[in-house]
Amino acid sequence: MTSKPRPAPRTPAMPPATTAKRGTIAVDLQIYKAVFNAVMSQRLPPGTRLGEAEFCELYQVSRTTVRKALQRLAHEHIIELRPNRGAVVASPSPDEARQVFAARRAIEREIVPLVIRNAGPAALTRLRLAIQAEHQALHAGDRPNWIRLGGEFHLLLAELAGNTVLQRFMSELVSRCSLIIALYDTGGAPMCADDEHEHLVQLMEAGRAEEATTLMESHLQAIETRLRLGEPKKKLSLAEALSG
């Protein structure tokens, strides 16, 4: 009996928001992700001007496509669209920075017990794999990737909490914290210490919600305390930031 040929593996479907216009929307998402990741890795500092013409040249697309990506970034407070000046990476003030960290502590205070309640063995495995990736970036001396992975660990916690509203809030807060750290960090230290992440997962795995929540709050407070609010860093070019 002749065996039938095996069908080719299916390509995972993209989210509904990315499938309306194949090609154009894909590049729009690509631009969004490139800027978002550059912010998360602190390669794209606050105050950097995002010229539409530069994006058009880099991605070979129209200004309409670029503007869609920039509008999404502005909606998430990652960039600012200024009349007659175009788009720039947002530059949070010291007061705004304190408010963002206060909001993040409040949100993550709710996320930790939800993860303990809802996360099973598979979820804990994902967390440990995320920590392993942080370790690898650390030992490879890849600071931008290390910083990005630190933020993604917190986003993974929000996902595993099972509350889509909190997850959406965290996506904005983590990106805004990355902006704040890029602007005011004293230098050297990462956004998150991976050993604290490991300790946090151990506490959650043991069901020690109160201790895990306390650790999360002190972890975030330590990051804020390290910042030198009021002393912004220098700017880099858009092409240089996105090349990473």
Results as ranks from 00 to 15, higher is better:
Ser3Ala: 14
Pro5Gly: 03
Pro7His: 12
Ala13Ile: 13
Met14Thr: 05
Pro15Asn: 12
Pro15Arg: 15
Thr18Leu: 12
Thr18Ser: 12
Thr18Val: 10
Thr19Ser: 06
Lys21Leu: 00
Arg22Asp: 02
Thr24Val: 05
Asp28Arg: 09
Leu29Phe: 13
Ala34Asn: 08
Val35Cys: 10
Arg49Met: 00
Gly51Cys: 11
Glu54Tyr: 03
Leu58Ala: 14
Leu58Asp: 08
Tyr59Leu: 08
Gln60Tyr: 01
Thr64Met: 10
Arg67Ile: 09
Ala69Leu: 07
Leu70Ala: 11
Leu70Ser: 13
Leu73Pro: 12
Glu80Gln: 11
Leu81Tyr: 00
Arg82Gly: 07
Pro83His: 12
Asn84Val: 08
Val89Lys: 06
Pro92Asp: 08
Pro94Trp: 05
Ala97Thr: 10
Gln99Ser: 00
Gln99Met: 13
Val100Arg: 06
Phe101Cys: 09
Ala103Ser: 15
Ala106Thr: 13
Ile107Val: 15
Glu110Leu: 11
Glu110Val: 00
Leu114His: 08
Ala119Ile: 04
Pro121Leu: 09
Pro121Cys: 07
Ala122Val: 04
Thr125Met: 00
Thr125Lys: 07
Gln132Ile: 01
Asp142Trp: 02
Ile147His: 06
Arg148Phe: 02
Leu149Lys: 01
Gly150His: 07
Leu155Arg: 09
Leu156Gln: 03
Leu157Ser: 02
Glu159Trp: 03
Glu159Phe: 03
Glu159Arg: 05
Gly162Pro: 02
Arg168Pro: 09
Leu173Glu: 02
Val174Gly: 04
Ser175Ala: 15
Ser175Leu: 07
Ser178Cys: 12
Ile181His: 03
Leu183Ile: 06
Thr186Lys: 10
Ala193Lys: 05
Glu196Met: 05
His197Ala: 09
Gln202Ile: 11
Met204Pro: 06
Ala206Ile: 10
Ala206Arg: 15
Glu211Ile: 08
Glu211Lys: 00
Ser218Gly: 14
Ser218His: 14
Ala222Cys: 14
Ile223Ala: 10
Glu224Gly: 00
Glu224Arg: 11
Lys234Pro: 01
Ala239Tyr: 04
Leu242Asp: 01
Gly244Lys: 12
Gly244Ala: 13
